[in-house]
Computed example of a mutant assay.
Amino acid sequence: MLVSVLAVVAYLFGAIPFGLLVAKSRGVDIRSKGSGNIGATNVFRVVGKGWGTCTFVLDALKGFLPAYAFPKAGACLVEGFSAEWGVLFGLLAIVGHTFPIYLKFKGGKGVATSAGMLLGVAPVAVGVGFVCWLVTVLVSRYVSLGSIIASFAVGITVWVDPREDSIIVQSALSLMSVLVIWLHRANIKRLLNGTENRFGKKKEAAS
């Protein structure tokens, strides 16, 4: 029963559209601007750096708290409550962000929420993924490409890291990486066509 309750709470918490709420607080409907995505990257481009950073942190917390704090809360209530339930709660938060019930199941791509979830269950993979994302964005100026490569790196790292021996965590994070890459399929098409927006270009940000 406790697992079921926490699972539902994780999904509903993950489904909170922080990007939409942050943008609306500035008088902007983020769904009709830029890429139309409610995630931190679009808020960053359209509303501003500070608000985009705020959205990223809030979206990351949606993944971190269910993955890290929910199992600890469960352990306080039920003896023997497994920490591995955090993987399920974190994944449900990502599903909530990607398919939010509040927005007719049309949400973001889950990159920030995935990063928060990873930080809660596999911090080494987060470090590797972040480095890959940062290097890719600095070199290519494509945020989407950085997210795709970071997701792929995370999926590999959880299998080669000797400190990570939970098959549940490894399998779940691999599936999560595949989900994030799949959600970027439109970006992949634009990258192949040479029409993807580059980060930091004023003309593209304005459009």
Rank of each mutant, 00 (worst) to 15 (best):
Q170V: 11
G155E: 03
V180D: 00
G107T: 11
M117S: 05
F105D: 05
L179E: 05
Y102R: 06
A112H: 04
L175F: 08
G120L: 03
L103T: 14
S114W: 03
A172R: 02
G107N: 08
A122I: 06
I156V: 15
F130V: 15
V135T: 13
S144D: 12
C132G: 07
V169A: 08
W182E: 09
S174C: 12
V111W: 03
I181Y: 06
G146Y: 07
I167G: 11
A122Q: 04
S140K: 03
L119N: 03
P162Y: 06
T157H: 00
V154D: 01
S144T: 13
L173A: 02
M176H: 01
G120W: 00
F105T: 11
S151N: 07
I181Q: 07
L175G: 12
L118E: 01
V137D: 05
L179S: 08
G120Q: 02
W159K: 04
P162E: 07
L138W: 06
S140M: 01
L119I: 05
R141D: 13
D161C: 14
S151K: 09
K106L: 11
Y102S: 13
I149C: 10
L183W: 14
T113P: 01
I156E: 03
L173V: 07
R141F: 08
I168K: 12
F105W: 08
A125Y: 00
V160P: 07
T136M: 08
L119W: 00
S166K: 10
S147K: 03
Q170P: 12
G127P: 05
A172Y: 05
G108H: 02
V158I: 11
V158D: 02
P162I: 13
A172G: 14
E164I: 15
Y142A: 12
T157F: 00
S114F: 10
G107Q: 07
V139A: 11
V121S: 03
T113W: 01
V180R: 02
A172V: 10
W133G: 14
I101S: 14
A172F: 09
Y142V: 12
C132T: 15
V111A: 13
S171H: 07
W182D: 06
P162L: 08
G107R: 04
H184V: 14
S174P: 00
M117C: 07
T136K: 04
V111P: 12
T157S: 11
I156D: 02
L103K: 10
S151C: 10
V126C: 05
G155N: 04
A150Q: 03
V139K: 10
V135C: 11
V124H: 04
I101H: 07
L145Q: 11
A122L: 08
G108L: 04
Y142M: 10
V154P: 02
R141K: 15
G116L: 04
W133I: 12
I149T: 14
V180C: 07
D165V: 15
S147H: 01
V158Q: 02
T113C: 08
L119P: 02
Q170F: 10
S140N: 04
L118W: 01
V135G: 09
L103S: 12
L145N: 13
F152I: 15
I156T: 09
W182I: 13
A153H: 05
K104F: 08
P123A: 04
S140H: 03
T136C: 11
S151T: 11
